[in-house]
Every structure is written in C-alpha cells, then in structure tokens.
Design a protein around this nucleic acid. Structure first.
Lengths: 332, 332
DNA sequence: CTGAAAGCGCTTACAG
DNA sequence: CTGAAAGCGCTTACAG
C-alpha cells in the first residue's frame, strides 16, 4: 500500500493524501476522513526509506561534549559515537565532538559554547552535577541526551550504566569467590560525591549482605587517581587485611599495585576494561571485572538523537541502561 | 557527494558511474579508473536510503529451517530472526520459517524441501551432521547460512557459539569458585558425538587444568534429555561425590534436580538461560550460567543473508561467533 | 482547499 | 561500451 494507491482509491492526489496523513491541515474534512479510513483499513505503513531519502536533503549536526581526555574508558564510547555518525554520513548528518579533560564546570560550559557555535541541532553530553552546568543546559533550546552520567533535569534521554546493578553484580562475584566461608571486604571508590559511585556501593553492599559471613570492613575514596589510589589501598590493607577488594571506579592500576606490593593474598574485583585491567585479568591478578558496554553507550546516544531529529519521535525509553557484564580471563 | 556529482566531475553519465562503482562491468578502463579515483578521493558513500528504496521493488524470501520445537533455547533465536525480518519488511522482504522437533535427518530434509517450494532466495539452517543432509545442502543453488550448528561444508557464513571458548569461560568460573583449594569436578554433556559439546569439554578442561588441585573425575552424557540427565547425574554424584558439576548442554533441569535430591553440597555451572536456569540462578541453586547471545544469532543470520541478497556482498567474516557471557543472579 | 510537477539519490531496462 | 529516461515512495514548493 502506497500513497499513490490511497490517492487513487480516494479519488484525489498524492499531495492531498500526504497533507492528511501528516497533519499538515487545510483539507476538506470529508475527504480527509475518507483518506484516513482507507489508510487504516489497508494498514498503510509509510516506506521508511523513501521518507529517509527526503530527509537527507536537510543537513543536521549533533554536538558532543565528552570528558574523555586522559581516560581510556572513553575510547570505546567515542568509537561508538563515530561509527554511528559514519553510518548516517550519507544522510546529510555530521557530528562535532569537543573532548575535555577533568571535571571542571567552567571548562564544560565553555565546551558547550564551543559546539553551539557550530549551530548544532542537538547536544550529547556527560554533564557535571553542578548548578552552573545545569543552568547552562536548561537555557538551551535544543534536545539533549545525557550519556554515562545522569543529572536530575529534563532531557530527551539518558544512556548509560545502571550503577546499582553494576555494584550488585560485583557483589555476586564476591559471593562466588568467598562462598559460604565469607571474609573481609574492602571497597575503593572514586568519590562519595559521585551519584554513580554511591549507587555502586549500595548495590554491592545489598548484594553482599545476603551472606552474613561477608563483612565490608572499609570503604575509601581514591578520587579516580592512580597515585591516590595506591596510597589509600595500601592504608586499607595494612589497617584491615581484607580478603577481597572491590574497585568500583577508576584508579585500578594504582590500587592493584598496592595489593601486589603488600604480598597479601587478596582477591580483586574491578569495573570496566582498560589496558591494565585486561592485563591483570590475563595474568590472574584480578578475578573479574564488570563492564558497562561503553561502545553501545556511544552508538545509542547518537542513534537516539538522529532518530529524534529526523522524525521528531522521542526514544521509546527515556532511561536506556546498557548491560553490566561479568568479564573473566576467557571473555572476549 | 552523489553519483550525479561524480558523473559531472568525470564527464560521464550516472549510469556509467553506477556500473563502475557496483562492478557491473563493461566500462572503458580509463574512464573506470577516473571514476574510482574521484569516488575514493571524495570519500563517496552511497546513500543507503536511496538504495533501500530501490531494493523494495524486488521481493525476496529467505527460508529458515530450525529444530526449535520443544527447546526453549530457540525462542530467543526465533525472536531475533523475526525482529530482523520485520525491520526489512517494507523493503519487499519476507521469511518462511519451518520449525521441526528433534534431530532426524529425513525430517530435516523434508523441511528443507518444504521451504524450497516457496521459491526462497536463500536458506538459513542449523544442519545436522549427517551425510544425507550434507548431500541435500550441497545440491542447492542458493546461498546458505548455518546458525548455531556448523558442519564442514562450503557456506556463505556460520553464525553461532564459539564452543571451545564457552567451555573455557565456564572453567574460569569453576576456578573462581574453587579458588586455590580446588576440588572434584563432574561434567554432564549432551553427546560426545556433537562437535560443539566435545569442544566445550576441551575448553573447560584446558581452562581448569591450569590449577592442579582441580580434578575432573567424570564426564557423562545425558542426550540433552531431562530424565536421562537426572539418572546420569544421580549416578555421577553417588559414585564420585563431586564438589562442582558443569552442565555443558541441555537437560539442566533434570540434572539440577538430581543434585538437589542428593542433599550434597555441590556447586553448579550451566550453559544458556531458559526459564528453569533463570529460576535456579535467582534461588542461588546454580552459581552461574554461560550464555551465547541467542537473540543476536537470529538477527545476524538474517542480516547477513539480507545484505548478501541485496548487494551481492559476502559478509566480512565467514565465521561469526557470538559472545559467550557469564550470567550471575544480578545479570539482566 | 486541491492538484500537477519536480526532486531526493540511486538502479534498471532500453536504445544506440 | 555509453547515455537518456523512467521509476522506487515520499515531500515540497508552486499555481490555481
């Protein structure tokens, strides 16, 4: 069933059918009713490819602000972003990516301004949870997708990790390792100020607490920094002598080195999969790591914005959580 | 960059550019070179939507033969197949699916004949490793994708599990559970005649053997059948009193019941995620299961055939292995 | 309020 | 070996 066929059946032109079916108004209501009933009776579905072909006439750009410099985790996210953008390339689509380092509010705001200068039609960002950033984002008139980090604010969609579940899954691994014997557990996290990190701690705690022989003896912050991580982990070990440590954020390399230097027999669970994590996994230094599909995070962010810009349809889900996956030595 | 622009730059017509870019031959080689260099220099990407719009003219059908009846595992595979087919629906595409039960060669052959009667342009099948099936497939003149099960034969592509790796990953889990203490391990598999099952055993064995305290004390067949599984598992337990059992194929429900009835403290690792597996995972009866992305297997099978039929391009990889994933209680 | 026509980027007969 | 033309299903000015 095509617009042409509907027009023939209704005894009118394709233009008029288009007006009715797409609510562009100014059509005699009797005619309109006739067209609508023909379309619904025949279960008319517009040809996606024909519609997309026309859309490729108007160019659109998505701006991406990402705190990726100096953080290998985001390599995969960026790959996902670029791969998806590449796929839409021929449809008159482009992205402008601004990479920044660290977590400074003003820097993020000027990064936003920078991409706005390119007259972008939408924004993808991992927003810092600061009043000035929030204000800035609220002032924008374009759709926003938040990825990896969520802040409480109106948005088209969020794409990222379900942090509570990630912690819960890590707790499952801890239970697998410790069995009914249980033992002492230490947690090393980036910052108690980070929503995601706090959620990982509660997920982990709730999961582990179902076994009364497992005791969380300490929970410390490493500010996502390797040398700081080394220090706090060293201290944690000498003070508590844990049987297992859960590194729930970045700073894995520094923390693991502290474990190795301690010469104690400590099991290790981490998050994400970067070069050092993979090496530690291969060497059997760490038992498991829980990943969050960073590549898919990038892909999905662009996909949602592209679909919204080209058909005005919001995504099916506002909150799009990627899968938390357990990776062991033989995992691909 | 469009074909029109390339034609203008090369001083020729769109038809000729099309012939060159799509290898339809019969073009003066000098002209062809010029066109190719213009296209590559400008990073020409054909507009997917325009191509898809045209493809929707010719109808094509893929036949699917799947031994899914009575085996819940294939529900997800079928979902993947249908979802992908649905996606191509408006492009004049359809599938004809023949579900069969059990593993009888003649039944599979008549299922093939049945879909062939619908004049299919390609075949997706999980072939039985039998001479008569092989002969039948060899006699076909249409492209074939084998999914889930591979047999040695020329084919467009295979989509399915890397069985050796699946076994290796299950071995990793066993090591995680048993730690340096080690223990006795039993294996329950479908059949030593099944290539995939044998590979899972070697992957598991090779992985586990890196720890000399872990001993595989028995390896038995359950014919993928629950009541048979109950019997052999019961026997295995009373004879060897293992600390852990790896169920590397179907028949999980029967086997696990035997473990529960034995009242011994035995850890369990399984493969795939069906309703009973999920329940056992939630109840903490089994420690982990290793899945093989059945949904993706379905999607990829149709995707490869669709792309091949509509653009004559073979898939990038002949062997497409889906990811083996560790699932614990908190896994989604 | 309505229709005829042009066009999106590509492919496909057809004529030479 | 090559080009002109028609057409895929839809949308968009434009003319009435």
């Amino acid at each position: 069933m095509t617009i042409k066929e509907i027009a023939a059946l209704a005894g009118t032109s394709r233009g008029t059918v288009d007006r009715v079916l797409n609510g562009r108004g100014n059509v005699n209501s009797e005619l309109a009713d006739r067209i609508i009933s023909i379309a619904t009776q025949n279960n008319y579905q517009p040809n996606q490819h024909a519609q997309a072909l026309i859309k490729s006439r108007k160019h659109m750009t998505i701006g991406v602000v990402i705190n990726s410099l100096g953080n290998e985790f985001f390599d995969d996210v960026l790959r996902g972003i670029h791969d998806r953008a590449q796929k839409y390339l021929s449809s008159g689509f482009s992205i402008i990516v601004k990479e920044i380092k660290g977590y400074d509010g003003n820097e993020q705001i000027s990064a936003i301004d920078m991409v706005l200068e390119h007259d972008v039609d939408a924004l993808a960002i991992m927003p810092l949870d600061l009043p000035e950033v929030r204000e800035k984002l609220k002032s924008l008139k374009i759709p926003i997708v938040m990825f990896n980090t969520d802040i409480q604010m109106d948005k088209l969609a969020f794409v990222g990790c379900d942090y509570y579940n990630s912690g819960g899954l890590s707790g499952d691994i801890a239970k697998l390792i410790m069995g009914s014997r249980g033992g002492k557990i230490g947690i090393v996290i980036g910052s108690f100020m980070m929503q995601g990190h706090k959620l990982r701690i509660s997920g982990f705690t709730d999961s582990v607490n179902t076994n009364e022989n497992m005791n969380i003896v300490a929970c410390v912050e490493n500010a996502d920094d390797d040398s700081r991580s080394y220090e706090v982990t060293k201290e944690l070990i000498s003070e508590h002598h844990p049987d297992l440590i859960y590194f729930g954020a970045a700073g894995v390399k520094g923390g693991v080195e502290a474990v190795l230097d301690s010469n104690e027999n400590i099991q290790i669970i981490t998050v994400d999969e970067t070069t050092p994590t993979r090496e530690y996994l291969d060497k059997g230094v760490i038992s498991a790591t829980v990943t969050q599909q960073p590549y898919i995070q990038g892909v999905l962010t662009i996909k949602i914005l592209y679909n919204y810009l080209s058909s005005k349809k919001p995504p099916r889900e506002r909150y799009n959580y990627t899968e938390n996956q357990v990776k062991l030595r033989n995992s691909k």
